[in-house]
């Protein structure tokens, strides 16, 4: 037994902390890598399913309803329509933006399924279903969907 003893606690032990840390190295699959390279060039390029002809943005390696691989790349527009949205008003762990902000499902022109993104340059109360919005690009060359900083009302804020 140890001679010195610095432990003076007498209350029962009821819990302990268990720190875990796992480091991963992730490589973007080819379909995602293509999309992100296009994003760097300020282009939104989706993929079309060879069976149902639906266009997905971000592109999908496999059509989720037809289970076939999608190879054909399709240039989408930089504007779209708000399918639906919510206003995030609470802070939470892991959050990137300062609330309140509008999180919307946007159907980009030339695509068939909505993209989840942020709507900016407009008061949350002013956002409506069916509103037309356009991409505002970030100046930084981010190889992620954050290259589009947010979407704003088409033609800029009135």
């Amino acid at each position: 037994m140890s001679d010195s003893d610095h432990t003076h606690e007498t209350a029962p032990v009821t819990r302990f902390k268990a720190p875990t840390r796992l480091d991963y190295t992730v490589t973007a699959a080819a379909v995602t890598a293509d999309f992100l390279r296009h994003i760097l060039e300020q282009r939104l390029v989706g993929r079309r399913c060879p069976v149902c002809a639906k266009v997905y943005l971000p592109p999908r390696g496999v059509c989720p309803t037809c289970a076939v691989r999608c190879h054909e790349q399709v240039e989408a527009g930089h504007a779209g329509t708000i399918d639906t949205f919510s206003v995030v008003r609470i802070p939470f762990e892991g959050q990137v933006l300062e609330p309140p902000y509008v999180c919307a499902r946007i159907l980009i022109d030339g695509t068939d399924a909505p993209l989840l993104h942020i709507v900016g340059e407009i008061a949350p109360e002013e956002v409506t279903l069916g509103m037309r919005v356009e991409a505002v690009w970030d100046d930084r060359p981010l190889p992620t969907l954050a290259r589009v900083r947010y979407f704003r009302p088409e033609g800029g804020t009135p």
Partner: peptide
């Protein structure tokens, strides 16, 4: 913290910036 566990930003995926309620709130609005 469940919110933490669910909102870990994974490389190359669109950021989940809305939280659990943020996913379902647009559906409720619809």
């Amino acid at each position: 913290n469940a919110m933490w566990a669910l909102s870990q930003p994974f490389p190359f995926l669109p950021p989940v910036s809305a939280g659990a309620g943020g996913y379902f709130a647009p559906v409720i609005r619809a």
